[in-house]
């Protein structure tokens, strides 16, 4: 308890600490937002709530890590992770997701939970349960008399994430496939009548999501750490963000992603690093509860 009060006191005593925490939170939050954007895409287009989301992220991270171990520059790891996870996403779609789209939501949720367990365990068998990261040969920037340290690697990571997000959004707006995806999201039946091959759209969307997650993971492993069983927390964060922002609300997803990142950093500063996972999950309950109260005022439930 004293510890907690002390930690809170620190925030007031040294206001720059707030800045550091916010900065840290926003940087990791940008990557949460990326994974959440993928989730919102899959959720909105094919109404599948993918609990394996975080495991795609971690898998992408291990792709980049493996390359790095073999002497290939980690920046190259990002596109490679994108492609590898695209393929894995496509296979996953063909084998499993395709068969659960039309079923009730619990089916897809449970199926993807099963996938999440499989992915985590396979990664564990392949890479062991130690945490891993890639050491980049990059300087750390210091501000405010050294109170704030920003590793270049994180900065580069965030910028890459922004570029990726921008690319995907542009793609969704401009390309024919992007238009087909948006049409299918609006009304799959109407899209089929108009001659859109929705199965192809679904396969593409799911693969794209998986690829986005993979790239996000490749960025994460450069500046943060990964571990085979971290996936579920990333999935939950993605859910928190999408639930808080709502579907098809891109600015909302970004804001919620950055917000979640910052809140988590604050939480682990105040309560201690051991509580980081707990905070991520408790934020889920908090967001669900707030949404519930909102709906209740509309005499509705959250479904």
């Amino acid at each position: 308890m004293d510890q907690i009060i002390g930690n809170i006191g620190l925030l007031f005593e040294f206001p720059v600490v707030n800045l550091k925490i916010l900065l840290d939170g926003i940087m990791i939050g940008a990557l949460f937002a990326l994974a959440a954007y993928g989730l919102a895409l899959v959720w909105g287009v094919m109404n599948v709530k993918n609990l394996a989301q975080g495991d795609f992220v971690i898998a992408g991270g291990y792709v980049a890590w493996t390359l790095d171990q073999n002497g290939i520059h980690p920046f190259l790891g990002i596109p490679v992770a994108f492609i590898v996870m695209w393929i894995i996403g496509w296979i996953t779609y063909k084998l499993v997701i395709k068969r659960v789209i039309e079923r009730d939501l619990f089916t897809s949720l449970l199926a993807t939970f099963g996938l999440a367990i499989m992915f985590a365990q396979i990664l564990n068998l392949m890479f062991g349960s130690d945490t891993q990261s890639i050491q980049l040969d990059m300087p750390t920037l210091y501000f405010a008399d050294g109170f704030i340290d920003v590793p270049m690697s994180k900065l580069v990571g965030v910028v890459t994430a922004l570029c990726l997000a921008f690319g995907v959004i542009l793609f969704m707006k401009r390309s024919r496939m992007g238009q087909a995806i948006r049409a299918t999201a609006q009304d799959a039946r109407a899209a089929r009548v108009l001659g859109i091959d929705t199965d192809k759209v679904y396969a593409f969307t799911f693969s794209l999501n998986s690829a986005i997650c993979g790239a996000a993971g490749a960025i994460i492993v450069m500046a943060w750490v990964i571990q085979p069983f971290y996936g579920i927390t990333y999935s939950i964060r993605a859910f928190v963000i999408v639930t808080a922002a709502g579907l098809g609300n891109l600015p909302g997803v970004i804001a919620a992603g950055l917000g979640i990142g910052a809140l988590e950093q604050y939480g682990s500063h105040i309560f201690g690093i051991g509580y980081q996972q707990a905070i991520a999950v408790l934020l889920l309950l908090l967001v669900l509860f707030i949404r519930l109260l909102q709906q209740r005022r509309k005499r509705q439930v959250l479904q």
Partner: peptide, 27 residues
């Protein structure tokens, strides 16, 4: 708290509660 949630939200909410409980107890 949770029975206002329907379908997948209930499933995820309960999953979150269980994970949170484990994490809190381990601290």
């Amino acid at each position: 708290l949770l029975f206002g949630l329907r379908g997948p939200y209930f499933a995820i909410g309960t999953l979150g509660a269980a994970i949170a409980a484990g994490e809190l107890v381990s601290n």
